Computed example of a mutant assay.
Amino acid sequence: MPNISPTEPLVRFTGVQKTYDGQQLVVRDLNLDIQRGEFLSLLGPSGSGKTTTLMMLAGFESPTAGDIFLDGRQITRTPPHKRNFGMVFQNYALFPHMTVAQNVAYPLTVRKVLAADRDTKVKRALEMVQMGGMGNRYPAQMSGGQQQRVALARALVFDPQLVLMDEPLGALDKQLREHMQIELKELHRQLGLTFVYVTHDQSEALTMSDRVAVFNDGAIQQIDVVTELYETPANRFVANFVGDNTIFNGAVTTTNQHKCEVRLPCGTLLYGLNVNGVNTGTAVQACVRPERIVVHTVDAKPCDNSIRAVLNDVIYFGDHLRLRCTLQEQAQATVKIPLSSIAVPQPGQALWLHLPPEHLRVYR
């Protein structure tokens, strides 16, 4: 992770709100610091406020309330062309009648950069995105991945303070999208610029980011480094939205500081982490990552924190197997096991699913 100062953010949102109709807030009371040199992803479902947040930062939308600061200077009403930010859109937004070089040079042209300097900067930007030698082609002659590289070169060519990306890989096929994720991460590492990236794809956010801000209903639910976001979700929404989750519904019977006991409808007792500090008698969801569940055959002595299940089917995922299991009075449970597992259970087999208490997180 880059060397980031915790005290001097590059960008600061303070009390920012946005409404389009004067009634419903699309973004509500947003307080967010973006650190210098970090790769921050804004992650969330459609309508969660992430894209509106990016558009306010870019200057294409104005906050209804609150302020945005850049390097300590208020830019809330500064027009987009005076913010010195690079922008990459999902639809590339390339000019079809211009060559690749002309498209990349466009931000320099409007900034009245001398022709000699323009050519040097365009060549360098195209080489950054592995498009050197293609400056004379037109967008229609290029694949979607190549067009996206051109759009990225155009965003980098004028040495912006900040690069903003609105789902830039959404139109690419899965294999190319995953390849571009790695390239973007490496480019960020090389350049040391600040990247702010909007996506609804949680695996994309986890792959590339230093930190991820998870949005829902116009508010940040959690902002954290990717490992903490995945391993220690702050609430039920984050737990279910980021990564796969296996869920058990029940009610809290006892609490002990940060831990609690949950009784399932079938009578099974489970112990886990009382994330939201819920009280006895509260209906809760006990959540665990599928790869944390340990499978035992039914003839083995069950460990504490185990629940009986019957295996429905085994699904091959290339790098792991997924077991889908039926539980009494619960939704189906998903378990992930490595391909190296010596004895893969068979459909119809009865199992014990052990849920390690340190990985079972209980949410109201």
Results as ranks from 00 to 15, higher is better:
residue 212 V to S: 06
residue 275 V to M: 08
residue 200 H to W: 05
residue 300 A to V: 11
residue 291 E to H: 09
residue 54 L to C: 08
residue 352 W to R: 12
residue 103 N to A: 03
residue 277 G to D: 07
residue 349 Q to E: 15
residue 235 N to E: 01
residue 88 V to N: 04
residue 245 N to C: 11
residue 363 Y to W: 03
residue 285 Q to A: 12
residue 185 K to L: 03
residue 307 I to N: 12
residue 164 L to E: 02
residue 19 T to L: 06
residue 220 I to L: 05
residue 350 A to E: 15
residue 288 V to C: 06
residue 158 F to D: 08
residue 332 Q to S: 15
residue 174 K to Y: 11
residue 311 L to S: 01
residue 300 A to K: 12
residue 52 T to C: 02
residue 32 L to G: 02
residue 275 V to D: 01
residue 204 E to G: 02
residue 271 Y to V: 15
residue 114 L to W: 07
residue 264 L to A: 07
residue 329 E to Q: 15
residue 184 L to I: 04
residue 23 Q to R: 15
residue 38 E to S: 01
residue 87 M to L: 09
residue 351 L to H: 08
residue 60 F to I: 05
residue 6 P to W: 10
residue 174 K to V: 09
residue 294 V to T: 14
residue 181 Q to H: 00
residue 128 M to H: 08
residue 130 Q to C: 12
residue 163 V to C: 06
residue 166 D to I: 11
residue 59 G to E: 04
residue 284 V to K: 02
residue 5 S to Y: 00
residue 316 Y to G: 13
residue 53 T to M: 00
residue 196 V to E: 02
residue 100 V to P: 06
residue 13 F to E: 02
residue 152 L to T: 02
residue 217 D to K: 14
residue 298 V to R: 12
residue 188 H to D: 00
residue 122 V to G: 03
residue 90 Q to A: 12
residue 108 L to C: 01
residue 214 V to T: 04
residue 346 Q to W: 09
residue 298 V to D: 14
residue 337 I to W: 05
residue 82 K to I: 06
residue 5 S to M: 00
residue 197 Y to V: 01
residue 202 Q to A: 07
residue 73 R to H: 04
residue 206 L to D: 05
residue 76 T to L: 03
residue 307 I to K: 11
residue 23 Q to L: 15
residue 296 H to S: 13
residue 129 V to C: 08
residue 338 P to T: 00
residue 305 N to T: 15
residue 144 G to T: 13
residue 299 D to C: 06
residue 75 I to V: 04
residue 141 Q to P: 11
residue 321 L to K: 13
residue 299 D to N: 13
residue 357 P to S: 11
residue 276 N to Q: 15
residue 149 R to K: 05
residue 63 P to F: 08
residue 328 Q to V: 13
residue 309 A to T: 04
residue 142 M to W: 09
residue 291 E to K: 10
residue 12 R to T: 05
residue 192 G to S: 02
residue 226 V to C: 13
residue 28 R to G: 14
residue 352 W to M: 11
residue 54 L to V: 06
residue 325 C to Y: 09
residue 137 R to V: 06
residue 153 A to I: 05
residue 276 N to K: 09
residue 236 R to S: 13
residue 355 L to A: 10
residue 290 P to K: 08
residue 238 V to A: 00
residue 256 N to L: 13
residue 215 F to Q: 03
residue 325 C to P: 08
residue 270 L to V: 11
residue 195 F to S: 00
residue 126 L to S: 05
residue 33 D to E: 12
